[in-house]
Design a protein around this nucleic acid. Sequence first.
DNA 1: GCGTAACCCTACGCACGAGTAGGTATGCTC
DNA 2: GAGCATACCTACTCGTGCGTAGGGTTACGC
Lengths: 212, 212
Amino acid sequence: MSTAPAFKRLPRAVREQQMLDAAVKVFSRRGFHAASMDEIAEDAGISKPMVYAYLGTKEEVFVACLHREGTRMMQAIAGAAAPDLPADERLWRGLRAFFGFVGAYRDGWAVLYRQARGEQPFAGELATMRARLVEVVAGMLDHALRAEGREVAGTDLEVVAYALVGATESLADWLADHPEADPEKTATRMMNVAWLGAGQLLQGVTWRPATD
Amino acid sequence: MSTAPAFKRLPRAVREQQMLDAAVKVFSRRGFHAASMDEIAEDAGISKPMVYAYLGTKEEVFVACLHREGTRMMQAIAGAAAPDLPADERLWRGLRAFFGFVGAYRDGWAVLYRQARGEQPFAGELATMRARLVEVVAGMLDHALRAEGREVAGTDLEVVAYALVGATESLADWLADHPEADPEKTATRMMNVAWLGAGQLLQGVTWRPATD
DNA sequence: GCGTAACCCTACGCACGAGTAGGTATGCTC
DNA sequence: GAGCATACCTACTCGTGCGTAGGGTTACGC
């Protein structure tokens, strides 16, 4: 019989990406635990055992999502912020790339930051990624300050970098919830806060002398 | 037989608090879904039906936790930042109170921000609370600027306030993971970043003119 | 054209955890 | 010290969803 096969057979590489797309979507909507493998399979237009065959258990599927979206984001940023540029230009381009990523892959962002953070097994992975970002930002600040002949304690640098990364993530959340907002403009605003605030502070200006 | 009752009978109000303590602890460790009512009950030193009798279903227990911790936090901040003080002093006291809260109730913080955020049914509640904070901060900035005869568009103010709140939350996370760190000092650092960065920016200084 | 490997399915087993039924003991009131 | 409310328990039911067993079909090499 030639019952036109409702859906085509596809090569593994393609199906895997479809599954990941579906998984990211479902995880971002429901959260890790509330998401069901059945829903992911259905959303990918496939049946559950295929997901197990290609991607493994639920945890493994989530890790695969985390990995793909994380890599995308890191590459977007790293590709934009070439290390031979002056620090402020690197920061600016990095921010633009970052907000561009969030604007383009909202679901990915939600999975990465809103979900992974709460679930114990994955929080570590996420923390590592963020730590890399903090390190890079701290490096930029340090570099910029050395160029002006100033020097600052490592811990202070790290904490300030942490605050900047936090502020950026927060604006990313805001952006994800405001589809009408412009990523470019958001990046500009963040750049202003970051560069002026951090710069001033690390140059020795303080609101109230830190009485350690 | 006088089999000394292994554990005492306690009045409802006391048991409820013990249950909430246990629930906050378990939720912060495991996350909402992975947490089990059995574990909460065991941790509180009573049996499961008591939890249902006093606090209701799992969702209701979580909401109760959210409510208690959220109220504690808001009261700590509001109590410290009296509205008749100058804006910078209010900001400073609010920050101190906030970091003090996080230092004292780490589990509460984790439940509030790391868990509630990811779970759809509760994210809204949390967003409302954060919105109130953003509003207050924006109000402070606005007030401070008007005092200097300057004026700024509402949206800009809100976005900057958002970034500041985000940076603060981020440092709170850092603090929660670094038990040795000093809340007071963290507050000082945040104050410096906030006041200098936001202040400068809103006074018209920019890194690169925003070319709307 | 025939074997074989890759793709894909329906239909289950089974554990885990939310929520409940139904009963016991302890203190408090009159 | 009888009656009653409140604190508390053990021991279940039952739905939900992860993970799998076992089998069918299409393409591709030779």
